[in-house]
Design a protein around this nucleic acid. Structure first.
Lengths: 203, 203, 203, 203
DNA sequence: CATGAATGAGCGTTCATTCAT
DNA sequence: GATGAATGAACGCTCATTCAT
């Protein structure tokens, strides 16, 4: 009894994207573990079981949300890193790009912030570790270049500085609301000004 | 602001504290929701049911961990705020105090970071909101004083600056490990240097 | 005993038969309960929902598979029983007929073996009980006739003998593969030889 | 935070055995897949979740039922096979032992009959395959010895004979009820008489 | 003080079935 | 005739919690 051609059962990508956006909002608001699949379904106006027509599991929704976000993030980052900019301009471009991503993927970023660490232990989410390493390499490298050419201060612990800048940028996702007073670019400008020049006045 | 009194007339307070410390570590490592009462009991060398001799519920453990931490935090903060320091010295003292708290209550701080937002919605954790508001008032007030007397730059959005400084400090709890290379005071010094003077060289 | 009429006025009976054959194979391979409607649809090259154009329910597929098989079985049995043969020849003919049915309806027989007992509890499958009773009557009667005319040994419990012969024949469906080394008639001959004369040598 | 001694949480073996006996009855009556964990719990007078205090999963109940049965079976078989009996006596002893096992583990045998084939595909139930192979080797070897020394007929296909004897014995579990008219030994005697000498009279 | 055993609510998931297109 | 998308009931299982001993 040979299995005949299996008709394509992959549903319309638009519906998937809608549902993923809904799920991302709920995950971001309540945390992944605390979010029930029924809650997502409610928010999407369907029953819990119906989600499984579109997705394999709750975890695969999370997976798709995070990997989509990271793919887009790295598109932007790679463009910056390949542009041959100086250290200061690179940092500026990375920060600006980051706030743009926060603007476009606020929920995904918030989820990433809360869940990445423990997800990274699972093989399925190995790419989080890889992304993290690549991320660290890019930032640390840029900072080192900047210290070498005297763009950045050399009296600071460079790993501490890395964490400082990294956290500074990404925690913003926890309070940022798109469509607020400041555009991502404006927020980036202010953040950069603080990070690069400090908040103290220069007399 | 004494946050709460939780007498729970039970024989041995030392055992309670031990158990709370154990619970805090587990909550910090795995997240509150993802932590089972059984996991805590395992770590404490007892059975899950036995914990209920000491505590009303899993939630009341969390409550006690967070309120104890906040009580201690505000003891330190209030001392600083009542000392009549100038804006820059106040910021320096608050940041230093914060890193000391991170050093002493790492687990509680990590839990606070991850869970405070959604806990704040529950009446039981109303004190988180109150603490948050008092916190904001103290920092914003100090920043405003500093802008007024030209200690701090006046070209920055003050709320953005507040968030920047606040996040900068507290996210450190997610990677800080007590007994590491840097003392809390040393970390505070470096953070302050970055926040106040920026990471760019001054030519 | 015509077991059932299931008209289900539907255009193409050939397609139905194809689908039923497919379903029977899957039921036989995985068990009725463990078989999903989707698995059948896959094997038939359609989507699960589409099967419901052809059949009322998964259960009605099972029903039709079993009743079709039993109708054919009884056609053959009735011919044997009405032929006026002696007890030994009747047994031989029934066993041979049984192996032929196993050859032609292997899947249905395997399903029958596994599921008949618990299905018999449902009113819808009452005909399984009736068939079972008629079956028992035919075999017991033949054995009794054979004991009476000294064709068969009279020192054996006749119900035990009945079960022995019955099981001996039908369990073969669980390992029999059509198109193998032995024809159904050859297998029947060997089985009859063992059942009638035993496996011990006669010295 | 070192994990302290974990108190023994393995519950009393008597309760386990009771529950396993209950589960075995239900599995045997309805089939493993068709049996819900709630149904077992009902039969045991508890709630579904409570079973998980005693067992890891529904599957582990099945596993324990089957492996306990097979262990006991092989104790008996091995004693027979190591006794140095002739082929006929070996067959007689194996059949008698088998009916004794059916008497003591009726439910387990019935489950084994229905589920062994598809369970064997799972690594967890690999031991079913091993048992099956050992079983086949023991029986085929004995039959071959018997053919060689002219105890058994040499005009029969030996694999067919093996299946015949094997099925003949074990299907009995599907209708056998302990405490009935016949003792296992009496049933064994009659079965052996049929299998060895046939049901036809010898004139 | 702690255990052993249970409760009961709820979770992620499966699946037969329906139905507009 | 078949598809795509949904329903709704039930399933195996987890877990905070209770309580007699």
């Amino acid at each position: 009894m040979p299995i005949k051609k299996k008709p394509q059962v992959t549903p319309s990508p638009e519906r998937r994207d809608e549902l993923l956006a809904t799920a991302a909002e709920v995950f971001a608001a309540q945390g992944y573990n605390a979010t029930t699949v029924r809650r997502i379904a409610d928010a999407a106006g369907m029953l819990a079981g119906s989600l499984y027509y579109h997705f394999d599991s709750k975890e695969s929704m999370l997976d798709e949300i995070l990997s989509t976000f990271l793919n887009e993030l790295w598109e932007g980052y790679d463009a910056v890193l390949d542009a041959g900019l100086g250290p200061r301009e690179t940092i500026e471009a990375l920060v600006t790009e980051s706030f743009r991503e926060i603007d476009r993927h606020r929920a995904a970023v918030a989820i990433y912030q809360k869940e990445a660490r423990h997800l990274a232990a699972q093989p399925r989410f190995q790419y989080l570790v890889e992304s993290q390493e690549k991320f660290e390499k890019a930032w640390l490298g840029t900072l080192e270049r900047g210290v070498a050419d005297r763009t950045f201060r050399d009296d600071l612990d460079i790993r501490l500085t890395y964490r400082f800048v990294r956290d500074t940028v990404w925690v913003a996702a926890s309070w940022y609301r798109p469509g607020g007073l400041h555009s991502p670019e404006e927020i980036a400008r202010q953040y950069l000004s603080m990070v690069l020049d400090g908040i103290a006045s220069r007399h």
